[in-house]
Design a protein around this nucleic acid. Structure first.
Lengths: 338, 338
DNA sequence: ATATCAAATTGAACCGTTACACTGCAATGT
DNA sequence: ACATTGCAGTGTAACGGTTCAATTTGATAT
């Protein structure tokens, strides 16, 4: 219909294309009455600038990529929300890439950044290795990772924004301790990964600080899934001595634990108290409502986007701002009634 | 670091830029040994094509916009998943725009399309009016709406893909009828809107077909929120005669209804059966698990993206394919045990 | 009337790629 | 020996904006 360019407007108004450009962009001199004639013509001709041409010339896309392993996980909704709040302020658009926990897809996302599809990228990944880290480091555009990650050799060119999960598990465990329970179990993820290790330490430190013994048969590793939590808890509850409380290192596992408790005819929280982490939407939907440590996902999103904007604008940043404090959300699964 | 262009490669290899372009894109003639020298140089120089330049030249962005009212609603994440499956096949990227149910934001999204930020758009909206519809019609790029919507004057240039919600409520109601209940209540949305009207008719037709009387005090309108469902059900359950079942026209309201039933000490499904619609993730998390009519969101997403791709490729389309059939997912809230 | 100066506008280059018409050149056929 | 064919690669003009040095215009001062 109306694929008009600044050339068409220029011709119609009887000025040069560069004048039209200045009138429309508001940069540089432009006489008042010429300007209003140009604006009127542009409106009448239904003109819309061609973003590709602008990007090519201006060398900025006003878009950022959010590369996320799993679109379906509600955890990331909140992050997207936070990211979006900041992007909106700056007139940026969000490109969502779904990496499915696959290295190949992650490298594809990085390649998009190299091809200047976007000005920066926020990436969530759980399998960083030499290959994707060096790919990220080889990109000019700023990248934010949502894990604490420092390459052995140093010299990383990305930022990271993360919540202190060590502290999260510590807070959750201390909450249980403050409820008076002593025999506390812990179900973590793979402790050979950095984040799994940190969470375990959070648990151990809280117990240690309170002078409580850690019972080794009550400490187990699973895989962050509901079913994994269920199976692990089932094994733990099959022993003669039962824990009085269980800390799960995420909500999905905690929900699996609750299922196992239900099957073992244990009442929550009377017989056994449960604490999860992530504070997913479903934490408040399950019965009883699950006490959970929020990793302040929305804040991670906001902060990550803010880092990107600061990098793009050349603003200085204090790295300390990138470490976020988790927040305990107390619900029914951990509070003994009365 | 390495902002190399095809000119740099050309210079290094000793050929012309156009030869480099052909070698890299694989279009047009290129001698074998020249080609491999170019490819080797490109790799060595860490070359990545500039997407802005390609877009400008090729006149296609290989991106589509998904404009959605509410990022947090899990309903849309299934859609995104479906959309993504198709886009991935075609090497397209997804731009997510959050319109917050605001006309202004919707018009902004349309403006992005006009500025050729993307090749097409899928839009979810509940407030179409002359302004945004005519804006959509004035865009060249294909647009898919996820409601059935035909402008009074006709001549619409967009497609629509939608699930038959009339049929959805009808199926849900018939399911309850088949369980032997007779006194069935219905909580819908605003019936002055098209979709609210259709859903109500689905209920009425199912009742009529089964020869069951519609009791007017059991038919109410609410606002599609959990709290709205709760309040409406509370009012309904405060009367001397109670319904044996309630159909809610979405899951959030159904969950509100369940809460009201719980407070009224009604057992679900023994005393009262509940059916929702949307089949959200939480439908299977609540207790008892909620029977719900799936609007096959993922399929809507897939189909919408497919329509866009067909339009972009010039493939013919059968409009009948755009109407989807809902699917009943039976869970515990509607089945009398035994 | 002419010099001076600021304001307004122009023209051309550029961003990095693709596509098309064209030129050499070697091998083939008659 | 000469036209024909096909292959390999080149040169150039876009795509639609922005920007900056150069130029024109118009107003004011001399």
């Amino acid at each position: 219909m109306d694929n008009n360019t600044i050339y068409h407007i220029a011709e119609r108004v009887g000025v040069s294309p560069s004048t039209v450009s200045r009138a429309l962009s508001g940069k540089g001199y432009c006489g008042q009455k010429t300007k209003s004639r140009i604006l009127a013509a542009a409106k009448e001709m239904n003109y819309a600038p061609d973003s590709a041409a602008q990007i090519l010339k201006l060398r900025q896309t006003r878009k950022i990529i959010f590369a996320v392993p799993d679109i379906c996980n509600p955890f990331y909704f909140d992050m997207i929300n936070g990211i979006n709040q900041v992007l909106e302020e700056h007139g940026y658009l969000l490109i969502l890439i779904y990496t499915k926990h696959s290295l190949k897809e992650e490298l594809k996302a990085i390649q998009n950044l190299r091809e200047k599809v976007a000005d920066g990228m926020i990436m969530v990944s759980f399998n960083f290795n030499e290959e994707n880290i060096s790919a990220i480091n080889s990109v000019q555009s700023p990248v934010v990772l949502t894990n604490k990650f420092v390459s052995p050799g140093g010299g990383d060119r990305f930022d990271y924004v993360y919540t202190d999960t060590y502290l999260g598990i510590k807070i959750g465990t201390e909450h249980l301790i403050s409820q008076g329970v002593r025999r506390i179990g812990y179900i973590g993820g793979n402790s050979s990964e950095q984040t799994g290790q940190q969470r375990l330490e959070g648990f151990l430190d809280a117990m240690d600080k309170a002078g409580l013994p850690v019972i080794s048969s009550f400490v187990a590793e699973s895989d962050y899934t509901e079913n994994g939590g269920y199976l692990t808890a089932k094994a733990m509850l099959g022993r003669p001595e039962l824990p009085e409380a269980i800390v799960a290192s995420n909500d999905l596992m905690a929900i699996g634990v609750m299922k196992a408790c239900e099957e073992a005819a244990l009442r929550i929280p009377e017989d056994i108290a449960i604490v999860g982490m992530d504070n997913l939407d479903i934490a408040s939907r399950v019965y009883p409502k699950l006490t959970s440590v929020s990793l302040v996902q929305e804040e991670i999103g906001r902060r990550s986007a803010q880092v990107l904007m600061d990098r793009l604008l050349g603003n200085p940043r204090d790295e300390e701002e990138n470490k976020l404090i988790p927040r305990l959300v107390v619900r029914n699964s951990s509070i003994k009634p009365g």
